[in-house]
């Protein structure tokens, strides 16, 4: 598995062809109805004042989702935005702010961000959650922001995500911690060429 990254950090990431040209930047990420996969990205222009583009990037056209850029093979792979939006929904519209409860009925908190796997998979691997006090005990002043792995099973009922109680217990403090729990080494940011 590749390096996990939060979906909100993808916004403004440049979209670059294998020829080295930056053609757009990511505006928002589109997830499928079950919040299991990325189905595409809506795009905006690269300039400061350029707005949303009419064309979007479907996931099959992505060569690799990297730490610093979304690589695509060809500019012609972009499709009209309506096609990409048809199967799923933009992140901001529903998943962010959704309630998370376990199948045992305990309320975990609300979704702050979605963690996806980089590379070519596009899987949703976890959620960043503003956890309830009961879920993460400790000091009143402690920030209760935890990462919860998505797990294999996830039920979506309206604006509520239901995760197995067992995966909720594997909540992690940060992305590096989550990556370790999922059995990936969180890639070192700097280093020699691979």
């Amino acid at each position: 598995m590749h390096e996990p990254m939060t979906v909100r950090s993808l916004t403004t990431r440049p979209v670059v062809t294998l020829g080295g040209d930056a053609v757009a930047q990511v505006k928002d990420t589109v997830l499928d109805a079950g919040a299991g996969h990325v189905t595409g990205f809506t795009l905006s222009g690269r300039g400061l004042l350029s707005g949303a583009l009419k064309r979007a990037l479907p996931w099959p056209a992505v060569h690799s989702l990297g730490h610093d850029a979304v690589m695509i093979r060809d500019l012609r792979d972009l499709t009209p935005a309506a096609v990409v939006m048809a199967g799923g929904e933009a992140l901001r519209s529903r998943v962010l702010g959704a309630r998370v409860v376990t199948d045992a009925g305990t309320e975990v908190g609300t979704v702050l961000d979605v963690v996806v796997e980089g590379g070519t998979g596009g899987r949703v691997v976890g959620f960043r959650i503003a956890a309830r006090k009961a879920f993460v005990p400790g000091s009143r002043h402690r920030r209760r922001r935890v990462y919860v792995p998505r797990g294999e099973t996830l039920d979506v009922c309206g604006r509520t995500l239901v995760i197995p109680a067992e995966t909720a217990r594997r909540a992690a403090e940060d992305l590096r911690d989550l990556a370790a729990r999922l059995g990936v080494s969180h890639a070192a940011r700097k280093g020699p060429l691979p």
């Binding site: 670059v16 062809t17 294998l18 020829g19 080295g20 040209d21 280093g191 020699p192 060429l193």
Partner: peptide
Amino acid sequence: FTTHGELPAHRLLGLGDYALV
């Protein structure tokens, strides 16, 4: 020669306005 070490020429893919891929 890059700031991260040496690269053989066969690894070049494309040179554009944003980057050398």
